[in-house]
């Protein structure tokens, strides 16, 4: 019954039918619909703003697919993230939390999406990104490296978008620094779901040869976490 209740709410009490991805707060039973998503990877970040210990639930629907229900933990500064290619279809987010006092902040993140104006990402010059800040630059037709460093021991999430899409149409990479295990390419360990790689140290290097593509890097750490990124030509 709980699931039925949740599904019956989808699309009801719509709050914003022309959501452009900018940060906004959804109260319980409110929805936001982005009429057209990118045809490449986009990130959805959601944070439970409840002042009491109420975890929330966010329903994500796109096209005719069954709703994806995301549990949004309470009282944490870390946003819950999902990165996907929604194939240019409409995307509707609905706050289907059971308690009434669970506002959820949502935001869509990617190049060209309002909400975050990226700073330039030049070659060879470190750029410091505060929480929820992004940098965008261009790669060259050569092997490149993106160095990511956080000046703390806190777990930090970084998302990179750009380059060619894989067979599923995705061209996004979610990386965690100061994580509890090493995983991803070259480690022999499969990364946790949704991640490309994780590392126990406070720095990670990402090597790639995408051609002359854009590269978009966003710091998805809590408000007090900064990130230094450096794009280098190998």
């Amino acid at each position: 019954m709980a699931n039925e209740d949740a599904i019956q709410r989808l699309g009801q009490n719509t709050h914003n039918t022309q959501w452009d991805g900018s940060p906004m707060v959804l109260q319980v039973a409110q929805s936001a619909t982005m009429p057209q998503t990118p045809l490449g990877t986009m990130i959805i970040a959601a944070k439970d703003l409840a002042t009491v210990n109420n975890s929330g639930t966010l329903a994500i629907t796109s096209g005719g697919s069954a709703p994806q229900l995301l549990t949004i933990p309470a009282l944490t500064p870390y946003p819950t993230l999902t990165a996907n290619n929604w194939q240019s279809q409409a995307l509707t987010l609905t706050n289907v939390s059971a308690p009434q006092d669970v506002p959820i902040m949502i935001q869509a993140i990617g190049p060209g999406i309002p909400g975050i104006t990226p700073v330039p990402l030049p070659f060879g010059t470190p750029v410091t990104l505060n929480s929820m800040q992004a940098a965008q630059g261009s790669s060259q037709m050569a092997w490149m490296q993106l160095l990511m460093e956080v000046p703390s021991a806190n777990i930090s999430n970084v998302a990179i978008l750009g380059g060619p899409a894989d067979a599923a149409g995705n061209n996004g990479y979610l990386i965690a620094l100061n994580y509890t295990v090493n995983s991803g390419p070259g480690t022999g360990n499969a990364p946790p779901p949704g991640y490309f790689a994780t590392t126990v140290v406070n720095a990670y290097t990402f090597q790639f040869n995408w051609g002359a593509s854009f590269i978009y890097v966003v710091n998805l750490t809590p408000p007090d976490g900064s990130l230094n990124v450096t794009l280098a030509n190998l």
Binding site: P38, T41, L161, P164, A165, G169, A212, F214
Partner: peptide, 26 residues
């Protein structure tokens, strides 16, 4: 935006050729 694109190319009566999954690039 991070959008893959597709171009359709036709010449004469030949069937269209589609260049799919073209990502933004310089």
């Amino acid at each position: 935006q991070n959008n893959a694109g597709t171009l359709g190319v036709t010449s004469g009566g030949a069937a269209p050729i589609f260049y799919n999954n073209v990502m933004p690039s310089l």
